[in-house]
Design a protein around this nucleic acid. Structure first.
Lengths: 345, 345
DNA sequence: CGAATGCGCTCAAACGATTTAGCAATGACA
DNA sequence: TGTCATTGCTAAATCGTTTGAGCGCATTCG
């Protein structure tokens, strides 16, 4: 079942393949092909349902009109939604998306980059794993169009699109403090990646600005690789170990989900016994009873900017670096309430 | 920044490109290339980090080692998880995945199929939209490896992998009946697609088998295109309009989510005032208070089988049709409870 | 009248791999 | 000595497209 090629059209139209190519690429004017011939070719192409072979075209032009999208986990609410919009936006420019999940694993990320290179993608949108610096540097030096998402590598100046992690966490902490909460815990991953650092920094800064104590022991770190069950267990232990805990902040959406589970398992009531805020929004947070207050990322904007920045590089070969930082939004729900003077110790 | 080609290796090794190709494709033995030359070429390839250009290879061989995955919505929990595992499984066979979301829209689906054809994908995994019959038929007739998911087209015999919708819905209904619920409503989409029909059929069959009345007015249909807000509104009206309603079944995960919202907005208590079961599992269902009983699809199995079936077609050109139906699992949580004799009217 | 220009199109190379057919050298055998 | 098979490799075609160079003809200009 072979497809129709440019040669078939040329034969039927009684012209050369070159002419067909010119017409079909909209260069009829430029290449001075007569109206007559042009029309005949266009009609034939439509009639035969000609579909240019992208492999041949790519081989010749060096462009595949494909971008590679490397996310942490396509099953994660945040990444799945970004992926969906990236696909839609890329489509507007005639680009298709090849994607892959790293699970935050260096080896997987390397594998994905290699495959994408094999496939000759024109550009990359990458959620870097820890220690991916060397590979990113190579990509950068070979002048491949590329933009990082969700985090960046401080040692390597590159394009990136991110949420303002510092501000998001700052706002969350400030909000809790203004409601009257004082003893606030912070649960995060062990990751040393920049987005996590900035969240802690923002949070810490707000606490400092409000002269609230924020000792080390109020921070709990859980490795990404720990299972759900074990994470829930660890969070429960942690909560039990902090007497008089007011409120708790989770630095990622999946930790927030674990957190809800932990608090439930402890028999405590969210919003009453313990206030809760999580980074990232989620259906679960919206519909939970009580609703979970969260720091939402502007998913649509992030995806839109990712594609925009990549397209700029792709089309204009501009080599000015684009670093986009978008504001986070605090969505207030019932998991945090104004504390009465009596409650506040 | 051009890559290393087979010619570069040939030149450096002092042999012809043909020889290099033979060696690199593991045909050294078969083509009687000497150990000496073989080793030299392999070493050089490794040293130069040779990466075969998949475009050129694809152009020549007609195989791109790429499969197209068409889902309803990559941001939906079910499809995102299937997509993730499809990607992992395909990778084991050296295949990459190009994906796209249809939003259950015929025009979008057609567009995706066209793009995938342009891109010369070797095979397709398709979640068909309504009225996609013609396109599927064409694909089938052109003997493209293909497997449908989540639903199939009854008029066209093709490969497919699905959950047992009839049994899943049957089990749910039977479970509710055994708990003592009698007046059970059913909320579904207006879609006439087979998976939806089978769910209604399974549900109806269980009601019949247990001699429970199940009049038309207990079924509420909501179009896919209706917004979340409007859907919630409609579900609320529906519930208010059925006096003495015991329990309610939602035929998809997003409807289940809307249902939770509706019942909450009505000020009713799930599990107490009204029992609830939804098709598909979801973090929200697991962590909701009370937990939501649901009919879970075996996501890992589905994805695994999808790739397996496709690979069979791809590799062996077997043209025996494969139709895989996997069991659904009823996950019991607190949204349905045993009713006391007193409660049951 | 001869050269220059414009017009409308075609030739052929190129992209980087795979693959079919075949060539030169060697050895075996009658 | 001549034939044939085997060994170890290569030449060249091919996939379908793009693209720089160029060709033959008609018209225009000095």
């Amino acid at each position: 079942m072979k497809g129709i090629s440019i040669k078939d059209i040329a034969k039927q139209a009684g012209v050369s393949p070159t002419t067909v190519s010119f017409v079909l690429n909209g260069k009829a004017r430029e290449k001075r092909i007569s109206e007559q011939v042009s029309k005949k070719i266009l009609k034939l192409a439509a009639k035969l349902k000609y579909k240019p072979n992208q492999l041949a075209r790519g081989l010749r032009t060096g462009k595949t009109k494909t971008i590679g999208l490397i996310v942490e986990d396509i099953a994660n609410h945040f990444f799945a939604n970004v992926a969906k919009i990236v696909e839609e936006e890329a489509d507007k420019f005639g680009y298709k998306v090849l994607y892959g999940s790293t699970e935050d694993n260096l080896v997987k990320a390397r594998g994905l980059l290699e495959v994408l290179e094999y496939r000759q993608v024109d550009g990359y949108i990458i959620t870097p794993t820890p220690n991916l610096d060397k590979e990113i540097e190579i990509l950068k030096n070979s002048r491949k169009p590329m933009v990082l998402m969700d985090r960046y590598l401080p040692q390597i100046p590159t394009n990136y699109v991110m949420v303002n992690n510092f501000q998001g966490a700052y706002d969350a902490a400030e909000y809790l403090l203004n409601l009257g909460y004082r003893k606030i815990a912070y649960v995060t991953t062990t990751s040393e990646q920049i987005q996590m650092k900035e969240r802690v920094n923002g949070f810490t800064a707000a606490m400092k600005a409000h002269r609230a104590p924020f000792p080390r022991k109020l921070i709990k770190k859980i490795p990404f690789s720990v299972t759900r069950e074990e994470s829930v267990e660890q969070i429960m232990e942690f909560i039990k170990g902090v007497p008089g805990l007011d409120a708790i902040f989770f630095a990622t959406n999946y930790l927030g989900v674990y957190g809800i589970e932990s608090i439930k398992d402890l028999g405590m009531k969210i919003g009453e016994d313990l206030a809760l805020i999580s980074f990232d929004d989620h259906d679960l947070f919206r519909l939970h009873t009580p609703g979970i207050t969260c720091v939402a990322q502007p998913i649509h904007d992030i995806a839109h900017n990712l594609v925009q920045v990549l397209m700029n590089e792709l089309n204009q070969h501009q080599h000015q670096i684009n670093q986009v930082v978008l504001p986070a939004t605090l969505i207030k729900r019932e998991s945090c309430r104004k504390r009465s003077k009596a409650e506040a110790v």
